[in-house]
Design a protein around this nucleic acid. Sequence first.
DNA 1: TTAATTTGGTTGCCAGGGCAACGGACATTC
DNA 2: GAATGTCCGTTGCCCTGGCAACCAAATTAA
Lengths: 223, 223
Amino acid sequence: MNIIPPNLPLFAGILQEDLPSLLYCVRATVETYKKRQTIISQGETVSNFGILLSGQARSLKLDADGRQVIVTLIRPGGVVGIILAAVTGERSLVEVVAEEDSRLLSIPFARIGAVCDCGGACRGREQLAANYTSLLARKALELHERIDCLLEPSVRSKVLTYLRRLAMEEGEGASKIALPFDREGMAEYLNVDRSALSRELSRMKREGLIDYRKNIFLLKAQC
Amino acid sequence: MNIIPPNLPLFAGILQEDLPSLLYCVRATVETYKKRQTIISQGETVSNFGILLSGQARSLKLDADGRQVIVTLIRPGGVVGIILAAVTGERSLVEVVAEEDSRLLSIPFARIGAVCDCGGACRGREQLAANYTSLLARKALELHERIDCLLEPSVRSKVLTYLRRLAMEEGEGASKIALPFDREGMAEYLNVDRSALSRELSRMKREGLIDYRKNIFLLKAQC
DNA sequence: TTAATTTGGTTGCCAGGGCAACGGACATTC
DNA sequence: GAATGTCCGTTGCCCTGGCAACCAAATTAA
């Protein structure tokens, strides 16, 4: 069990030495998934949430006409099922699939709020609950930020809204931005056609609004 | 303080008689807002969350070119700032404005997780924390569901995705759906033009896919 | 009652962007 | 080296849907 990387936000403020008994007490397990294996299926109810320890996954939605839409990209440290586990009885709208061989730390949500039954051997129960809430809030914020982009009417305004937010996060006034996506990922996130995105990006570069090479973007002053 | 309506999810599982001391202990206050008054401004950091007791509010985004986009509609029992209060230091992306004279139960997020300092007079602290997490998760789920609609490529598929979800919630196999929106609200939620929505709805009615009068919709079998 | 306002359906216009197809730049493998 | 794959920019075609303008019905005010 000591394959838990340090600095996971879920364990922030918890002493490294307290982790083993805490993990044991909350019934944490490590699950492994092979490439293309399903972690959560659409329609399933979910009682565990997970932290991706290694590998990569994505959540995708199969809509009624069979189109496959990417909803989220999950990297190590990222979180799986944190929303669903916290609302009892809801069925998953998305399918979560491992994109590479992956390891997932899985914890029953019910054990997060539960009173400790191991006679006080584990410390950090409250901290863990607080961290869970914090992770959940962060996740909600991410969803909110994406909606912010999706609500924009044009490809251009979608891109600008997105870049401005990244610039904001990267530090005040910063304008050099390293995207977490390649072009295709960026297009999927903004829900636009990849070629339409390329077209608009070139246009914006030509007009001097932005500059970019690969996934490094530069946001010019007036944005 | 005894103007708290019963059945607020935030207080589920907490005895009515325990409420007063609990509310006192978490420093809950009731704030009143006049029509068009701002509850949270864009860019503000937020440390309190709120439950709307009466009135109505909406959160809206002023994008860079001044366009005003409605993000959420908040009705009594609904929740304000629950995400932001739980992530320290983030600035609000949206403006929350009262649409009518409103009353808001406001609670500092910091008091939710905090240890009680009133000598045990208040019961239900853990329950309150659990309820907060549950509300937050539900909010996140709502955001997720909206993204689900927004990701759909056409007006028609947006509408169907939305209606199918409502039908699902309304009970298994149910196909008679009472929308919480008028046409304009529906268009804003799905982020489409109102007239384009009307156009597509008529088309779908003509094709026998759906039927509707006012805000009552009927989803035919094959959907 | 009539006037005024809100709500929602209709229609013509036209541009933004989805789609498909292609090609060039790099990287990887044999 | 050739061969294969991936990533990304470009372009033409054409349809969806945004926009504006208008109207009918319903609702509210006067």
